[in-house]
Amino acid sequence: MNFSDLLGAGILGLVFVLVFLALMVLFIVYERSHQGRPLRPIPAFERFKREIGLAVEAGKRLHITLGRGGLTGQEAGSALIGLQVLERVSRTASISDKPPVTTSGDGSLAILSQDTSRAVARSMGVESQYDPSAGRLSGLTPFAYAAGTIPVILDEQVAATIVAGHFGSEVALITDAAERNGSLTLAGSDNLSAQAVIYATAEEPLIGEELYAAGAYLNAGPAHQASLRAQDIIRWVLIIIILAGAALKLIGML
């Protein structure tokens, strides 16, 4: 009988989520009352923050592409991070004549990107500048989506393209177009084959969980810093459990 059978997989999972949640809440309280320890530098985010400022000054547009993952599947996490990045970028670029443009390969993501842009415009008092066509559905199949995104990069004076969401190998078409356009490409995905392609084609690749740290690095609030710290602790606990399990198996106790 294994550990999961002993306690019941459901209850074990629930306990895991509750411990994660408790750690996050604990660190949110801590982050609000203290200046938490600084995050390790990720050059991609530093460069990206600089690029947002330069794009606003130069009157150029920022492009965020959210991938083709739906909201009801496992791939929703990376798309939601893309929306978080959109929110931060829209806030910073709200003084620009050209608000960020968003492309996606899923209907619900297109609606949420419009909603995010509108919410930011409303909170910044510039709702009249909100343009619904800034949040677009560019295609519904992987390659149709990539093909629909390329003209946005090439035709709309894009200074930087942020690729954040669920992609397959078709992401290379998007990052290559950005490269040819001479714009900065910051890219991350939850899919492993997309990550391999992104490493080769994007100027600033985000590998593994780096994409999920975007909120913390773009100052989206204490909850983002807190969740990073909670992730670190849970990661070490899981590593210790895996190593202990392997050691117990090796000596024949499991």
Binding site: G77, S78, I81
Partner: peptide, 29 residues
């Protein structure tokens, strides 16, 4: 390597979900 990367992605996904669940992230305006 793939398992290590997926491990990070899974933890990031859980954290993202929990942030929405506690109302910290609101991707619905």
């Amino acid at each position: 390597g793939a398992r290590g990367l997926l491990f990070g992605v899974a933890l990031g996904t859980i954290a993202t979900g929990l942030r929405i669940l506690i109302g910290s992230d609101r991707p619905y305006g």
